[in-house]
């Protein structure tokens, strides 16, 4: 049975997505995932969250999907050890050194390679399988045939069904930290690398600014945007289920719990409707239902993008 995986940016969102029918939720330990600290969890909250999710009969994974500093590896090992002790069901990792260390320390722990690993070809699938990864989060730009190839490589496959496709390959971009990066070390010694999404800080989404494209002495175009589209998948989902995709993942820890709960409910119904009657399932009705969700999502995304761009360009700096 395909798993519906939802974001847990805070406890309210965790409750909302489980109420809406998610099978599993992913959360970010503070400082260790690709989101602002406000959408990550401290240890006390994580411990309570793991207990809560398990009490609901669901699974919870921790996203350590960043590329830390070498000196932070002991902190990573300590944090991972705590989460394993509290019963975390799996982890999402990016750094290959962290993946290898986690595999050595916890041979039975499910390890998912983050979309930030930028896994784009068959040789990558073999590399990550050999490293000990159990499931690969497929890059948004991967064609369907590649999802088959991941399965054939003997690794689980996870597909983003609500997410954004960056202008660049995710994990292969440092435009944000080039513009503004603040090194902030907390009491434990963890650097939060604000401005570097690869390292656990926020992305200032500067690709979405209106750019002027020019040649020397001549403006070619104004208001150019480096495309970074948010998407909902609908038509593809039956193909994914038939292929045996293990996890359908919804991104969005920085959205409101109400919106993410509604998105999860939408996909829960869609998947259940297809599984109940594959022959009779039609995408049109779902596209129609998406309209209001898309409007809400675009409004929240637009406001957050403006906030981040303002911070990135140094207009203000908020915690």
């Amino acid at each position: 049975m395909v798993e519906l995986l939802a974001p847990g940016g805070n406890m309210a969102m965790v409750r909302a997505v489980l109420d809406a029918g998610a099978d599993a939720v992913y959360v970010g330990p503070r400082g260790w995932s690709r989101r602002a600290a406000a959408f990550e969890m401290d240890d006390d909250t994580l411990k309570a969250c793991i207990a809560y999710v398990h009490a609901r009969g669901k699974k919870i994974r921790a996203a350590f999907n960043t590329l830390p500093a070498g000196r932070e590896i002991p902190l990573f090992s300590e944090e991972l050890g705590r989460l394993v002790e509290w019963g975390i069901d799996g982890v999402i990792l990016t750094d290959i050194g962290c993946i290898a260390a986690a595999r050595r320390a916890f041979p039975d722990l499910p390890i998912h390679a983050s979309v930030g690993c930028n896994i784009v070809n068959g040789a990558d699938y073999a590399f990550y399988r050999e490293l000990g990864v159990t499931q690969i989060v497929a890059d948004c730009k991967l064609p369907f045939e590649e999802l088959k190839a991941i399965k054939e490589a003997g690794v689980g496959v996870e597909v983003l069904i609500h997410a954004t496709t960056c202008f660049t390959y995710i994990g292969q971009c440092w435009m944000s930290s080039f513009t503004r990066q603040v090194r902030e070390i907390d009491a434990r010694g963890k650097d939060h690398f604000r401005g570097s999404p690869n390292r656990g800080g926020v992305c200032y989404r500067l690709c979405l600014l209106p750019w002027q494209l020019g040649l020397v002495g001549r403006v070619v175009a104004d208001g150019v945007v480096l495309r970074n589209d948010a998407f909902f998948l609908v038509d593809e989902i039956p193909d994914y289920i038939r292929l045996g995709v293990d996890t359908l993942k919804i991104q969005g820890r920085e959205y409101s719990p109400g919106l993410i709960g509604a998105i999860v409910a939408f996909y829960r119904e869609l998947v259940d409707a297809y599984l109940a009657d594959p022959a009779g399932w039609r995408p049109q009705v779902w596209h129609e239902r998406l309209r209001s969700l898309r409007q809400r999502r675009d409004a929240e995304r637009g406001a957050r993008t403006a906030e981040l761009q303002g911070e990135g360009l140094g207009q203000r700096c908020t915690a």
Binding site: L67, A69, D95, I96, G97, C98, A100, L131, Q172
Partner: peptide, 13 residues
């Protein structure tokens, strides 16, 4: 673009 950030990652390579 190999994203070498940590010594553990480099040692894997």
């Amino acid at each position: 673009f190999a994203n070498v950030y940590t010594h553990l990652g480099a040692l894997e390579l």
